[in-house]
Amino acid sequence: MNSAQSTKIHNLTFIGLLAALICVLAPISFPIPISPVPISMAFLAVYFCAIVGGMKRGTISVVVYILLGGIGVPVFAGWTAGFQKLAGPTGGYLIGYLFLAAITGYFADRFEDKIPICLFGMIMGTLICYLFGTVWLAVLMKVSFGKALFMGVIPYLPGDAVKIALALLSAFPLRKRLKSAGIV
């Protein structure tokens, strides 16, 4: 096996592991009465994978996660699955994970030693994900953008801030160790 093949196998394996992490954490969720959007661990998983894997591998791992859920593997919130979930109230957030991973991963790749700048990137990615999810929710539920914002974003802000902090504290040290070991 040549070096190019070895690198390709390494990258595919790494992406598979990142996607598996999302598939394990994302279904852990808790419904809340004021919204069809549950509190889930998906944001934490996407932040973590985007930081550790970077923009390309982190985003591809989210694509794999969405495709697995779409074809029927129960990896979405509450151990649900199917393309109907992508068309449902949480569909905009699921698609928004792609942008969350790409933006967070971009900042992690470019500014990995500058945590405040990476934090800014995570917040920007989160805002884009919130935007996709809120617009989708407003259209689907036939409510105003403000009402959708209250249903799909406002109650989640404290928890998502904690998830950002957890990802910053755990993913960057792991990324550095994996990088020094030649894995990333």
Rank of each mutant, 00 (worst) to 15 (best):
K176E: 14
L67I: 15
C118V: 10
T90N: 11
Q5D: 13
S3N: 15
V75Y: 01
L137Q: 09
I15Q: 03
S170H: 01
W79A: 10
L119P: 00
K8Q: 14
I115G: 01
L166S: 09
V143E: 13
I66C: 03
F48A: 06
F76D: 07
V64K: 05
F14V: 08
V24H: 05
S3R: 15
L119T: 13
A20G: 14
I39M: 15
K8C: 06
P33T: 08
G105Q: 08
G53C: 08
G78N: 04
G78F: 07
G121Y: 04
G54R: 08
L44Y: 14
M141R: 13
I123Y: 04
I34C: 03
A181D: 03
I28A: 09
F120N: 00
I164V: 15
I51T: 01
F48G: 03
G121A: 05
A138D: 08
G70Y: 04
K179Q: 12
I34K: 02
A19I: 08
M55Y: 10
I51D: 00
I66P: 02
I115V: 10
V135K: 03
S170W: 00
M55E: 13
G69N: 07
P38Y: 10
Y97Q: 02
P158D: 08
N11T: 13
P74D: 09
L168A: 08
M55Q: 15
L137E: 03
I117L: 14
V143F: 12
M55N: 12
S61R: 02
L44S: 12
L68D: 03
F76T: 09
A26F: 04
K56L: 15
F132C: 13
A102S: 11
N11A: 11
I128M: 10
E112Y: 12
L86P: 02
G133V: 04
V62F: 04
L17F: 09
M124T: 14
G54A: 12
R57P: 05
A181Q: 12
R57K: 15
S3G: 12
Y47I: 09
G70T: 15
N11Q: 14
I128C: 10
L131M: 11
L169P: 01
G72K: 06
L178E: 07
L68Q: 10
R177N: 11
A81D: 12
G105T: 05
G182W: 05
V143G: 11
I183E: 06
A161P: 02
A4W: 06
S29G: 07
G105F: 07
V135Y: 07
T59V: 02
N11P: 00
P116Q: 04
I9G: 02
S35L: 04
S35K: 02
K147P: 02
L68Y: 01
A167V: 07
V139N: 07
V46T: 14
V153I: 12
L127R: 00
V73D: 06
G133C: 08
N11Y: 08
N11G: 01
L137W: 08
S61M: 03
T80D: 05
P36L: 05
T134Y: 09
I60P: 00
G69M: 10
P74T: 06
F48K: 01
A20V: 02
C129A: 14
V153L: 07
I39K: 14
G96Y: 01
I39V: 15
L178R: 02
